[in-house]
Design a binder for these strands. Structure first.
Lengths: 240, 240
DNA sequence: TTTTAGTAGTGGTATAGACAACTATATTTC
DNA sequence: GAAATATAGTTGTCTATACCACTACTAAAA
């Protein structure tokens, strides 16, 4: 069942096995999975190795344990995983819509005070300011303004900014965004926003400001977005 | 340093030790903590036990590891922890405001179709419907309508509904809400909402619908809230 | 019939060791 | 001096075992 020659850890292969069985409904929601001792016997690994696999899935919310009884398959939280930390591109894809962008501003500038503080930059340090209209199914969905330190994105070009910056950062630069804080407000659209989003002035809009950090807590970006309320709702899962 | 007679696991005592040292700035942000072997030597426990403690703190985001180098103290994510899953009462307390409620409806009724589906109830099953105006610093902040299965809250009274239902559920009934899904939208206030919130009709409001589950995935409540946009913004932390 | 005690099975905690993969530094070799 | 090589220290993975606490069931005792 397991391949000891593969460069993949055994506990990881066991995780994949368990997830597959759950996916295939062989282990149904609320049901017991085989005991740790039985799995270690079946896969010919030590119980500690099985335990590492099961513990990871418990932490991920896929399984839960009850002392003296066994380990059970947890209720699925999600129809779509709907990870909170996704790019606009990915967000729209998950919602089953096509996405595109219209770049309306792309410049490097000295960071204004408020942004400088949030990105923890020194005085005079430069940032990119990228302003885009985000389209879903070819209709305006949001206005998005992104501020990022120039020093973190040496090779950023206008061409990249027209697509997915997240994709560039993760695939090309190999950096990973680890967490973010968001503030969500309801506002009334001003004249400019209404014009760009093709709605009436004073229409309700969802305003989101997100500050994202790379691993080790390095501030990466501040994003201010204004979404059409009639086309967008923000969904999040909350734990504990 | 550790007490082997205490009914507390050794790994837990090591977790507390490490968190204390970080709190006291003895292990500063970004600095190396002692290696796993050194800690196991110091506390006279096996390395696996130290590893369990460190792994838990890595999962909690307090530490991060780098292979071949060591384990480091992570940047603090939070000024206030700002847990997502809090009651209105707790939410306002964290924001430094006093909270109170005005009960405007409290009744048991057969669940309408939409709510029945979300709470996974059988036909004809009854729910409580609690409608409250939520006040912060004595001014209206939100209108909140809560739907809960009667069978889960046998002793719910109007008196309790005037205060914190979450407090009653957790402290008196001993049930714990484990996770929730929220949908957040921007809307324009209708006549009734505007009147209850003391704002002008068509003012922007934040509409939040939350579905909460107890452990093991039992649906507990559906809450629909309408917040004054000029007084409230929704803040959340997102991982990975 | 009811209660009590036993027993087998579960996850929870902990040990002592082993080797692999990776990083940084020092040493040797060219 | 520069490059290749050792080596010491780190986390990553894994083993084989042990005993504890808890649950569910069974068998014996009241």
């Amino acid at each position: 069942m397991l391949n000891k020659d593969l460069p993949l850890p055994l506990y990881y292969q066991i995780e994949e096995y368990l997830k597959r069985k759950i996916e295939e409904r062989e282990f149904g929601v609320g049901e017991l999975i085989p005991s740790e001792r039985e799995l270690s016997e079946r896969f010919q690994v030590s119980r500690m190795t099985v335990r590492q696999a099961v513990t990871n899935l418990v932490n991920a919310g896929v399984l839960y344990r009850e002392k003296g009884k066994g380990t059970f398959v947890a209720e699925r939280k999600i129809e779509q995983p709907l990870k909170g930390l996704t790019s606009f591109t990915e967000d729209m894809r998950q919602r089953g819509m096509s996405s595109s962008s219209k770049l309306i501003a792309f410049e490097a500038m000295v960071a204004p005070g408020e942004i400088r503080e949030k990105l923890k930059l020194k005085d005079e340090e430069e940032i990119y300011c990228v302003r885009r209209i985000r389209m879903a199914d070819r209709k305006p969905m949001a206005i998005e303004t992104t501020f990022m330190p120039v020093k973190l994105l040496p090779g950023l070009t206008e061409k990249i900014a027209k697509g997915s910056i997240y994709h560039y950062v993760e695939q090309e630069l190999g950096m990973a965004i680890s967490h973010a804080r968001q503030m969500i407000e309801a506002r009334a659209a001003d004249e400019e926003q209404a014009h760009l989003l093709d709605i009436l002035p004073q229409s309700p809009v969802l305003h989101i400001e997100r500050s994202s950090l790379l691993s080790k807590g390095i501030p990466f970006e501040v994003v201010r977005s204004t979404y059409r309320a009639d086309r967008y709702s923000f969904i999040s899962d909350i734990e504990r």
